[in-house]
Design a protein around this nucleic acid. Structure first.
Length: 519
RNA sequence: GGGGCGGUAGCUCAGCCGGUCAGAGCAGUGGACUCAUAAUCCAUCGGUCGCCAGUUCAAGUCUGGUCCGCCCCA
């Protein structure tokens, strides 16, 4: 049992054959922001991501490219997936690959335990198999082929012929866990979030669970079934286990106890694997079920879902090259209600970058720092007598701190950001009303000028702390300019308004320079 | 065929248990100001809340039906 301050968050592991697009990056960034936020609140935080490297599809691609599947995976991990994390500034604590020895060995250990405990039996399976989908298809999921596949049954997703396979399989008695799963959803209404995702899972399980075929014998790129080397473990069964093998399951019980259970973040397309199959597997093994499964929405581009199989994907670098990783992170997490589908467009991205990051936060930072340099020679002023307006700013700082932390607890990232943004708006408004540039012209108003600037300075520092999970780079620059000690990402975010002020500010370059509008 | 979600100002979206709920941000328009990244602040234009019927003293807000989009299951 993990103690209350342990926070372990996971993303789905990337299927190495995919090409990274903003959908992958979105999940990563969301998990990263939650992880950074918890770290900054002092929680014992662990963020895991990684790659899924087994399965027939990868074997075939590798073979077609004349290399072994492992070589193929190595190449993609090094050239595509690790770089993606750097592109969007994700600070994961671990990166697991399903070809890691720590994973494969303990997948076998897990499987053997289920086998020994009677949760697995031998059966026979016959069905139409789509290599593209990596799964068997029901009759209803097949359509008549056209063109070169005329007269054949093809997969509705890939439009490629399916194969009629007949194999001896090992089955997991998942059906035995239907009642316990329903009880779980009942007892912990937030186990599957958001509500819409929970509804789908509920109705799926209520309609009855079938046992799950968990092995394949038609190819050998996978984890060997320990008691039958002619079979490899079904890729999904294998992949899900990464969440526990990465934190010591089977080999480091102390670490496992410290981390598990995890909060899973997944796209809603793979919700069922995480909210039904995975908990059932854990129950069978006598382990705790996850802390929660959150299914976020799709990114819609031009009203259509971004697809892995189709080519509507946008590479994250296309965005970060122009706007930077901070803007990427901010845009997707603030503009989209976390959990719902969200529309992406270049126009919207550019508009929000300009209005919110450049004109809102960036410019606020510029004007405050510039005035302290100009009117106080860079020495951080201190407040004398405080007016109602000054107290109000302090109150907004507290509210933003409390509200955002509470929102993070509900996984409402967009809400955490908008709560914080109230401070941005309050400070810009405060400066307009107090007019420090006017006060500066009258020597008798010196005390008031310093109080106003001290108040604005303090609010800006609070913003830096609160925004550092989302905007790690910009806030680090701001923190330095504010002359505050330590690193901004080490400041307690749940008490952001209590940060310790510095002594001297230094010039600040534009945090979010204006971007030339391009086509 | 069964089920879920969404259809609210030009754009993106809030609106919980029905009664200032017709809102926010952006865009547009007018004004103020100049510390700042031609930034900021104030004001303002703008919608028969997909459509039809019903329940109710009162319905984006509940019921039934219907159209459109997406998704899950069979």
């Amino acid at each position: 049992m993990a103690d209350a301050s342990s926070f372990y968050i996971t993303t789905p592991i990337f299927y190495v054959n995919d090409v990274p697009h903003i959908g992958h990056a979105y999940t990563e960034v969301a998990a990263d922001v939650l992880a950074r936020w918890h770290r900054q609140a002092g929680d014992d935080t662990w963020m895991l991501t990684g790659t899924d490297e087994h399965g027939q599809k990868i074997l075939r691609t590798a073979t077609a490219n004349g290399v072994t599947p492992k070589e193929w995976a190595d190449k993609l991990v090094a050239e595509a997936w690790q770089p993606l994390l750097a592109t969007i500034d994700v600070r994961n604590d671990d990166f697991i690959r399903t070809t890691d020895e720590r994973h494969e060995r303990n997948v076998q250990k897990f499987l053997q335990k289920l086998y020994d405990d009677g949760h697995i039996y031998t059966g026979e399976y016959e069905g139409y198999y789509c290599v593209g989908c990596e799964e068997y298809k029901q009759q209803s999921e097949l359509v008549e082929g056209t063109g070169e596949y005329e007269g054949q049954l093809v997969c509705a997703v890939h439009s490629k012929p399916v194969e009629l396979l007949h194999e001896k399989n090992y089955f997991f008695r998942m059906s035995a866990f239907a009642d316990r799963l329903l009880a779980l959803y009942e007892e912990r209404p937030d186990f599957v979030q958001p509500e819409s995702a929970r509804n789908e899972v509920l109705s799926f399980v209520r309609s009855g669970l079938a046992d799950l075929s968990i092995s394949r014998s038609t190819f050998d790129w996978g984890v060997e079934v320990p008691w039958d080397e002619s079979h490899v473990v079904y890729v999904w069964f294998d992949a899900l286990l990464n969440y526990i093998t990465a934190v010591g399951y089977g080999q480091d019980e102390a670490e496992f106890a410290r981390r598990w259970p995890a909060q899973h973040l997944v796209g809603k397309d793979i919700l069922r694997f995480h909210a039904v199959i995975w908990p059932a597997m854990l129950m069978a093994a006598g382990l705790e079920v996850p802390r929660g499964v959150f299914g976020h929405g799709w990114l819609l581009v031009g009203g259509e879902k971004m697809s892995k199989s189709k080519l509507t994907g946008i590479a994250p670098e296309q965005i970060t090259e122009t706007f930077g990783s901070d803007a990427f992170r901010y845009y997707f997490l603030s503009a989209i209600h976390f959990g719902q589908d969200g529309s992406f467009s270049w126009e919207d991205l550019a508009a929000r970058y300009q209005a919110e990051l450049a004109n809102g936060f960036g410019n606020l930072a510029s004007r405050v720092v510039a005035m302290i340099i100009r009117y106080c020679d860079g020495f951080v002023p201190s407040a004398a007598e405080r007016s109602a307006a000054d107290h109000e700013i302090a109150a907004v700082e507290r509210r933003a701190t409390d509200a955002s932390w509470s929102a993070i607890g509900r996984l409402a990232i967009h809400e955490a950001i908008s709560s914080t943004w109230e401070l941005v708006d309050a400070l810009n408004g405060y400066l307009t009303v107090e007019e420090p540039w006017t006060l500066a012209k009258d020597p008798h108003q010196r005390a008031r000028l310093e109080t106003v600037l001290a108040t604005a300075y303090h609010g800006l520092g609070t913003l830096a702390v609160l925004l550092s999970p989302v905007l790690p780079q910009a806030t680090a620059k701001l923190w330095t300019a504010l002359g505050a000690s330590g690193a901004v990402h080490e400041q307690r975010i749940d008490r952001a308004h209590e940060w310790s002020v510095g002594e001297r500010v230094t010039p600040l370059e534009a945090l979010f320079p204006r971007v030339e509008v391009s086509a």
